[in-house]
């Protein structure tokens, strides 16, 4: 008797589990890039939003890769609602139906944002640059451009680059003497890709690959790398909050834009839009650059910033002068192919 009851109970419990799991609603989950940047976002967006709406918002951290988003949807195990993605991830994901169409009317209307922020499936979150950084405490005079960045004789030690072909191949070509406005023309040919990998091969032993934006400033601080490619904001944040003396070299910086997207089939779509609307107000966005110097996307947000902050932003005219805008078109067509080649090359 007893045994049968136990068994019956166990079977019933096992059968009820998935149903119960699905029925229990899930809190809005927002995914961003971690480290100092997400710390700033927490102060500026996440906490105030939770306080204002009196509801829970969960945070996750990721380090990019369209495959991660594809896997999440294809495995039927997606738990993310709002994700901050890079520009070519936005294009690829939109093309493949990974994201919900953006309801612009619900987030303040297209005119409330700068023109670059508009996409059918996403709304621009920040503008930022990849720059050269080094620690003045360890190196008085660092490299002035990407060619010198690859000069292992003059600047011994490891140099950090972002793991993946994007930015790495552009940098390799610029280090090989290609002018910024020619980079994608060269990279569009098989010979150009070979040239980039050849250039990287010459310094392969001196390269350290970072995957998260928080790593370059830590590695610099710890002396793990002598030089690194890094997000401009992370370096400024380390100087401001950790008392570091990191140098930023803006020469031929690579700039681009990140966007917020809503994952396809998200059960929290309404709350996601509510969050994006909240995060799109100029007075809210103006809180971000003082904490981490990235450009913001709401019209009118820049007018609320202190004047001394403006030269540290990627959007400052002198920083844009010889910058390379990362081509999301190019990466839309080539990211998979080149990622495969890059991964094989790097793990060998």
């Amino acid at each position: 008797m007893f045994r049968r009851d136990v068994l019956k109970g166990a079977v019933a419990a096992a059968a009820a589990l998935p149903a119960a799991a699905q029925a229990q609603g899930r809190d809005l989950t927002v995914v961003s890039w971690g480290g100092a940047y997400q710390d700033a976002q927490r102060e500026v967006f996440f906490r105030p939003f939770q306080q204002q709406t009196r509801s829970r918002l969960l945070e996750e951290t990721w380090d990019g890769g369209i495959g991660v988003l594809r896997s999440r949807l294809a495995s039927g195990a997606n738990t993310w609602d709002v994700v901050q993605v890079e520009s070519e991830e936005l294009l690829i994901g939109a093309d493949e139906g990974l994201f919900e169409p953006m309801d612009w009317a619900a987030i303040g209307g297209r005119d409330a944002y700068i023109p670059q922020a508009y996409n059918e499936h996403g709304v621009g979150a920040i503008l930022y640059s990849f720059v050269i950084a080094y620690d003045r405490a360890r190196m008085a005079q660092g490299p002035a451009n990407w060619t010198e960045f690859f000069d292992t004789a003059r600047f011994p030690g490891k140099r950090g680059l972002r793991k993946g072909p994007k930015t790495t191949l552009e940098i390799a070509l610029m280090a090989d003497g290609v002018a910024p406005d020619q980079v994608y023309a060269v990279l569009g040919t098989a010979a150009g890709v070979d040239r980039a990998f050849r250039r990287l091969e010459t310094v392969k032993g001196d390269l350290a690959w970072w995957e998260r934006g928080a790593q370059p400033p830590q590695w610099l601080a710890a002396g793990e790398v002598a030089l690194t490619n890094a997000y401009n904001g992370r370096i400024s944040a380390a100087n401001a909050t950790d008392g570091r003396n990191f140098a930023i070299v803006w020469a031929n910086n690579l700039y681009t834009l990140d966007s917020w997207v809503i994952m396809k089939g998200s059960p929290n779509k309404a709350r996601a839009l509510e969050f994006l609307k909240f995060a799109g107000q100029p007075e809210i966005q103006a809180g971000l650059p003082p904490r981490i110097p990235y450009g913001v996307t709401a019209k009118g947000a820049n007018d609320r910033l202190p004047a001394e902050l403006l030269p540290n932003l990627p959007t400052a005219p002198q920083n844009l002068a010889n910058a390379l805008q990362i081509s999301d078109r190019f990466w839309l067509d080539n990211l998979d192919r080149l990622t495969q080649r890059f991964n094989t090359w790097v793990s060998r």
Binding site: G67, R70, S71, A74, K163, S347
Partner: peptide, 20 residues
């Protein structure tokens, strides 16, 4: 480890969650 020290398990994880 560095990129040259990853073992089979890492590649299983990589192909499962980052490249479908």
């Amino acid at each position: 480890g560095g990129p040259n020290d990853q073992m089979l398990a890492w590649f299983v994880g990589f192909y499962a969650t980052r490249s479908v």
